[in-house]
Write a protein that binds this DNA or RNA. Structure first.
Length: 493
RNA sequence: GCCCUCAUCGUCUAGUCAGGUCUAGGACACAGGCCUUUCAAGCCUGGUACAUGGGUUCGAAUCCCGUUGAGGGCACCA
């Protein structure tokens, strides 16, 4: 049996990262079994339809490196893969059930249904359809008046769902609603559409969030009514935010595109998601896995059943690991869009600026948690810095005079350097510190503040090299002026 | 309210199905240290967990029952 799984999002907005984690499981399962991964769009809710949502989904999947074998943009033998293009099929299937007496027409108004539910809630009962139209004669509700088609759920007996992770789950039929199958606008509900499509598209395994467990018996009853075999189920736990609630916007980034914009590498995010609720087990202590390793080692039966909290800390760490593993050339290419988007450099990056960027890459590589961090780390190279406050220009355990002298000596040293590069300046700079009776840190700290305007920066000499001689000397001059002004003020007092 | 699911460090998890090798292992985060021009990175060290009460058993994180807690569902939403 060829494994066929699907991801069936509804185009109602940006795909949620928690759902994407479940997609990762599906995709890995398909790939490790040489099966097919199908993308199907469940756009049966016209009220919530968002036009651009499909593109957001396909872009996101592609960015994460999850390709689909059938679906929008790629086609396939079981199409169409968009439910709104399959309306005729659902109608026909619903009518089949009608003819068999397994479904019935219902013309109850939304107002009446709401009133019924309200009364049930008031009595502390589970709100559900009261079966008002269930016993009407077949012709009593005309096909020509506004109505829905409901499934006639048995009032007795149990429906059992077998889940490969949880075993058998038993539901009492009497607690099940007479589910609407076809809405009055002619669109199917999720329940009808998903059963019809999963069957007709030959889906063998359904892996999805456990929020679908409670409604699965309704669909199982549908499979039974149609005389079809249901797929194999695996309900995986939901992803929670740090407060233990279902992951949402207030927890931080939740859509794939947000993660991209924040500077996460797709391969790092993919690695992280695969490990959210799943682990290789058997004492395995590896955390970083290539896509191929994940495909080979993923085990659907080892999915942890407890809901997992999305940890941005762990994601940051994994992202840092991947960034450090990149070649410098590769990292440069990935960094350029972030420099561009920040406005630090023009878009597209001019070729004359590339040597500078290339110089910065090794300086930032082990300091980045996300690609976007490069902006804050290197902005001093591209824009003017604020005049450094006097406190930052006086070294630890140093007087203003000593600091001024040090700055002037550094100016002279750098101005006279034959080659203006980190390697050339390091030796002489260390010598200078010694000569002045300073610890290296004392001297470098005031130079760092003068040149980068920051207390904390990438390695000093590399930063100076990237900045260039002219700008460096100019900034040292400014520092000199600040110190001179300070001394004058002191003497005046 | 009713129904379903779940329960190991703060977090992700290994171990649970085939009870002893678990005074519970790893990772992230945190704390301390080393390295060091700052910050990182790297290395070393440390603290922190089997929700709870009963069983079963020579022996339970592992099996059973209750309790508690958490999550989810109860639409002409998916």
């Amino acid at each position: 049996m060829t494994v066929r799984v699907r991801f069936a999002p509804s185009p109602t907005g940006e795909p949620h990262i928690g759902n994407i984690r479940t997609v990762v499981f599906n995709w890995l399962f398909a790939r490790q079994n040489q099966g097919q991964f199908v993308l199907r769009i469940e756009d049966t809710d016209r009220a919530r339809y968002v036009e651009k949502a499909l593109r957001v989904v396909t872009d996101g999947l592609r960015w994460l490196g999850m390709d689909w074998d059938e679906g929008p943009e790629v086609g396939g033998d079981y199409g169409p893969y968009v439910q709104s293009e399959r309306l005729g099929i659902y109608k026909e299937k619903a009518e089949e059930l009608l003819a068999q007496g397994r479904a019935y027409r219902c013309n109850c108004s939304p107002e009446r249904l709401e009133a019924v539910r309200e009364a049930q809630r008031a009595r502390g009962e589970t709100p559900m359809y009261d079966g008002h139209c269930r016993d009407k004669a077949p012709g009593e509700v005309s096909p020509n008046e506004p109505h829905v088609i409901r499934l006639m759920v048995p009032r007795e007996g149990n429906t059992v769902m077998h889940d490969i992770l949880r075993g058998d789950i038993v539901f009492e039929n009497r607690l099940l609603d007479d589910q609407v199958l076809l809405k009055s606008d002619g669109f199917p509900t999720y329940h009808l559409a998903v059963v019809v499509d999963d069957h007709m598209m030959g889906i063998t395994h359904v892996m999805r969030g456990d929020d679908w467990i409670s409604s699965e018996p309704k669909r199982l009853l549908l499979y039974e009514a149609f005389g079809w075999q249901s797929p194999i189920y695996a309900h995986v736990p939901l992803v929670l935010g740090t407060d233990g609630k279902k992951l949402g916007k207030r927890h931080g980034a939740v859509s794939i595109d947000e993660f991209r914009r924040q500077g996460y590498l797709p391969e790092a995010l993919f690695n992280f998601l695969a490990l959210l609720g799943w682990a290789p087990g058997s004492g395995e202590e590896q955390e970083i896995f290539t896509r191929e390793e994940l495909i080979a080692r993923f085990d659907i039966t080892h999915i942890n059943l407890a809901p997992a909290v999305f940890s941005y800390d762990k994601l940051n760490w994994i992202n840092g690991q991947y960034i450090r593993a990149l070649s410098q050339d590769e990292l440069l290419e990935r960094l350029i869009p972030f420099w561009e988007d920040s406005g630090l450099i023009p878009t597209p990056a001019p070729t004359e600026i590339r040597p500078t960027l290339k110089l910065l890459v090794p300086l930032v590589q082990e300091r980045l948690k996300t690609l976007r961090d490069v902006v804050e780390l290197t902005d001093f190279v591209f824009c003017e810095i604020d005049t450094p406050p006097i406190e930052t220009l006086i070294g630890k355990k140093m007087t203003a005079e000593q600091s001024l002298d040090a700055i002037r000596r550094v100016q002279a040293l750098l101005a006279g350097l034959l080659h203006f590069d980190a390697e050339t300046m390091e030796g002489p700079m260390r010598h200078l510190a010694e000569e002045l009776g300073l610890k290296a840190g004392q001297l470098f700290s005031i130079v760092r503040n003068a040149v980068t305007g920051k207390e904390v920066s990438p390695p000093l000499f590399g930063s100076i090299e990237a900045l260039g001689r002219e700008k460096t000397l100019r900034r040292l001059e400014v520092a000199e002026e600040v110190l001179v002004a300070h001394l004058k003020e002191q003497q005046g007092e």
